[in-house]
Design a protein around this nucleic acid. Structure first.
Lengths: 349, 349
DNA sequence: TTGAAAGCGCTAACAC
DNA sequence: GTGTTAGCGCTTTCAA
């Protein structure tokens, strides 16, 4: 910092070192022909002034910000997305990129806003967890202005973006299979669907590919084994979910096992179960999508269908980095889910 | 996007609209004297080209990036910091700022790196959860180059930074008081201390003000009521914590209640309890710092000392915004903790 | 080995 | 009401 209170510029350094800006730049960056001595002088001057290169100016000149934008739905107060966010930030850093995170609370309007802002900030690339499969006009070529985009966790039909997802259809189907093996014959799938009110057992429009896959997987699994199955599509909120679960557990068609489409739904089941004094793993079994530290720490520990979140983050960044370096790929990475058997599924004979 | 594949600039718009850059800028930003008609023409041209203002150039010119940097320790895969991060991002957005998030895994070296990068990106301000009370040379005036900094969740002694913290001393003390009322006479405090190996009951250097406060609060509370108390300072890792808890529970000085200094420690207790078949809320009581959705959903639900995380985020951004607008304040906001009584503390008579 | 100068995209004096 | 111009801090030709 020079005498004034604003950060030192390369000019300040040049002046103090008694050389030109160009020389200073070269000395600091260490390229071109330059004498050992000058380098030392310049370095000392820079140090003395507490010089930090202005990355904004650099970005301006280079036309690259070395920054990627990450737009996640919901907040990342979510056992899957928080770790995904971390994984992405880490992988990006590994590749020399900073990450700017926006979250959209599952709201397309916020998503549009976030994408716009990020584009204006001239991020070099974008990773997006899209809110809606049907509304994505803000992702057309013109809006993106050539910024590469990778989809995370969800696909967008009718678009050609590269994406990183998991085999959730198979994951759900196999989970049903597993429950069947454990003797369950009456199963329910509790599905959070953004945009709907309360809950319904009529299948609504599902604007999220992942949720759709899980739903279809559940149906397929149930059909294969001919078990009694029901689905409950419910509002993506704490109160809505709890009401739905209460209905489910107090009704006449009470299942022996509930599958939940995400951790929030799992928590709803757990809360209601606690309230109704039904014991998980005995009176009622549970399997959820996505693992979390607390699911493993519960008594009983919760059986889950986990997804390789770190690897997903890695993959997303890899895909993006490759696109940012010019390739116009539209590859899809589909990783495998992995069941983690714990103690929340009772054996019934 | 113009014919070439790079984003349209204001020049492109000006050319298409047949006016000068300055006029274009005025038309788009809507300032100065300008005819209605020109505005329309320019707007249309901009639209047609998919023009997005280049915020990098703007930032360069204005000397402001409208961005703040957030450096959190650990990852934010943490029931407190994830919500804090969200709160900060939201509050920042409210004030027209984007947020760049870095995390340091509780490692000072990473913290230095993160701060440096952010300074070079010319963030307008910084919110930091510092890793270490003893090592903060990288936060001196010169390194910061005048960038305002607000401390979050932890104070740094011997510095003059504004900070947002909570009354953890009182929180811990009152929790002991509460446990005493419920009849507990033998209490243990499980404290995560970064940097130590395994665990010890000898009080080590605690480089985190918050943890120090909690420890002192526990001691004070225990002293006031003359209960048998012990402390276990343990490595901040899953395996380390579990080993410590196992020792605690199988030893002869087994307490009736364990206080945990954060959620990771709570999970360790829960995991070990599950393994050892000790029932929480009956065989063993638990109170933890920091609330979380899952703590409330467990059976029994966990009694916690919660902190007003949204408000903390708000406050931090407020403090920062005020500093960014020129004031050189060094105010400290200390918010109150709030006990949430649930079912993990048994009544003993 | 070093310096001078141009230009990245934008806005704001200042002229007309 | 609109255009011209300078300059934010940096890197990189091009000359010397």
């Amino acid at each position: 910092m020079s005498k004034t209170n604003r950060p030192a510029t390369i000019n300040d350094v040049a002046e103090l070192a008694g050389v030109s800006r160009a020389t200073t730049s070269r000395a600091l960056a260490g390229y071109g022909r330059i004498s050992e001595e000058t380098v030392l002088t310049v370095r000392k001057a820079a140090e003395q002034l507490g010089y930090h290169p202005n990355e904004v100016a650099r970005a301006m000149r280079a036309g690259k910000t070395k920054t990627i934008g990450l737009v996640v739905i919901s907040d990342f107060t979510n056992a899957f997305l928080d770790r995904a966010t971390k994984a992405i930030i880490d992988a990006a850093k590994q590749n020399g990129y900073q990450t700017v995170v926006s979250h959209t609370d599952e709201n397309v309007h916020n998503e549009k806003q976030a994408v716009k802002t990020l584009i204006e900030k001239r991020v070099d690339g974008l990773i997006l967890v899209p809110s809606s499969d049907t509304d994505h006009q803000h992702l057309n070529d013109m809006a993106l202005g050539g910024t590469p985009l990778v989809l995370f966790d969800r696909k967008l039909h009718e678009t050609k973006f590269a994406s990183v997802t998991t085999g959730d259809f198979e994951g759900a189907r196999d989970a049903v299979e597993y429950a069947h093996k454990k003797g369950h014959r009456s199963m329910a799938f509790l599905v959070a669907v953004p945009g709907i009110k309360n809950s319904t057992d009529k299948r609504p429009q599902i604007p999220i590919s992942t949720v759709e896959d899980r739903t279809n997987g559940f149906i397929e699994g149930a059909a294969m084994r001919d078990v009694k199955s029901q689905m409950l599509f419910c509002e993506d909120s704490q109160s809505g979910a709890e009401a739905a679960v209460e209905g489910l557990l107090s009704g006449s068609k009470k299942p022996t096992i509930i599958f939940t489409s995400n951790n929030d739904m799992l928590l709803a089941v757990l809360r209601v179960a606690g309230k109704l004094k039904v014991t998980i793993g005995k009176d009622l079994s549970v399997i959820s999508f996505d693992d979390s530290p607390w699911a493993a720490a519960m008594s009983p520990a919760i059986t889950v269908i986990s997804r390789p979140v770190d690897q997903m983050g890695q993959e997303a960044v890899d895909l993006l980095v490759r696109q940012m370096s010019g390739k116009k790929i539209s590859e899809d990475a589909v990783l495998e889910t992995r069941p983690i058997e714990r103690d929340s599924v009772a054996t019934i004979n």
